[in-house]
Write a protein that binds this DNA or RNA. Structure first.
Length: 275
DNA sequence: CGGGTTACCTGACGGC
DNA sequence: TGCCGTCAGGTAACCC
């Protein structure tokens, strides 16, 4: 489901809804066998902790409390949603409930169970096995810029589309925004990373920055089932130039948008605009 | 190590 | 209506 704009939208929504810093009164773990086993001690570790804030690193969410950080990843179909504990909104795919001192309940729902929940000791985020090998944030221009991307791409014989989706190179770019950014950079997704010019890298970095920033403002893309923590859809899908538009005319030049599988994922591009 | 493929899991949808 | 194949926004474990 979620790439960086969707996760950032969830983060800001959670942060806003948790601005009163409620205390976690109890945690219910219904089933722990998702992508990685949810630590059985998670409920007892979080009980009584006050929520201090919500951060994001790559596509991971970090809910801070004084003695433990709740780390989550939404995988393809995961969501965090607020429900009134008194109103029955239970779903068979709710795996964990965080009960709050204000009477609300925060539910972690994930039908395909590709997501994850874990605990991190405060101050040790960068040592976590899932976080320690991640590349720079795409909106951090100091670390993610054309010089960096050009250098990283040298001697790499992968399609540039797979390259920018590699979370060790840059985080947050998933299957939708990879195609969208390459269209805006006028670079064909099947071009080999090692054959990008410095100018290509400049365009690509700028395109990634622009498309992710605009998608965050729009509240993300809702293609199938993405919803923010309040249950609302994003709007950026209407700004998609190529994603899921195979066979349709390019909005710039009118050529027919093409699609093929690259790196195991559906990929879309304009054969006329992109070289 | 780099690069490609597959598996993980459930649900939605289209064709027959 | 129902069955079957295909596909889905992510990631990591495999293989060569």
């Amino acid at each position: 489901m979620p790439e960086l704009p969707e996760v950032e939208t969830v983060r800001s929504g959670l942060e806003k809804q948790l601005s009163e810093h409620p205390t976690i009164t109890s945690v219910k773990l219904m089933r722990g066998d998702i992508r990685f086993e949810i630590p059985p001690e998670l409920p007892v570790r979080l009980k009584g902790q006050r929520i201090l804030g919500v951060r994001r690193r790559a596509k991971y969410l970090l809910i801070d409390t004084p003695k433990a950080i709740l780390l989550s990843h939404l995988g393809m179909t995961g969501s965090w949603r607020f429900t009134d504990a008194k109103v029955s909104d239970a779903d068979k795919h709710d795996h964990c409930y965080i009960e709050l001192s204000d009477g609300r309940r925060l539910a972690f729902r994930d039908p395909r169970r590709f997501g994850m929940l874990d605990l991190v000791e405060p101050g040790r985020e960068e040592e976590h096995p899932r976080l320690k090998s991640l590349g720079p944030e795409p909106l951090d221009s100091e670390h993610f810029n054309a010089g960096y991307l050009f250098k990283k791409s040298r001697k790499r014989h992968v399609a540039v589309k797979a390259f920018i989706m590699d979370q060790k190179i840059v985080v947050g770019v998933g299957n939708i925004y990879a195609s969208e950014a390459l269209f805006r950079a006028r670079v064909r997704p099947q071009r080999l990373a090692g054959r990008l010019s410095q100018l290509d890298c400049e365009r690509l970095v700028a395109a990634i920055h622009t498309v992710l920033s605009e998608a965050i403002v729009a509240g993300g893309s809702s293609i199938r089932d993405y919803r923010n923590a309040s249950g609302e859809s994003g709007a950026f899908q209407s700004s998609h130039q190529v994603y899921e538009r195979g066979g349709d005319p390019c909005r710039i030049c009118g050529a027919t948008i093409r699609s093929k599988v690259i790196g195991g994922r559906s990929t879309y591009w304009c054969p006329s605009c992109q070289k």
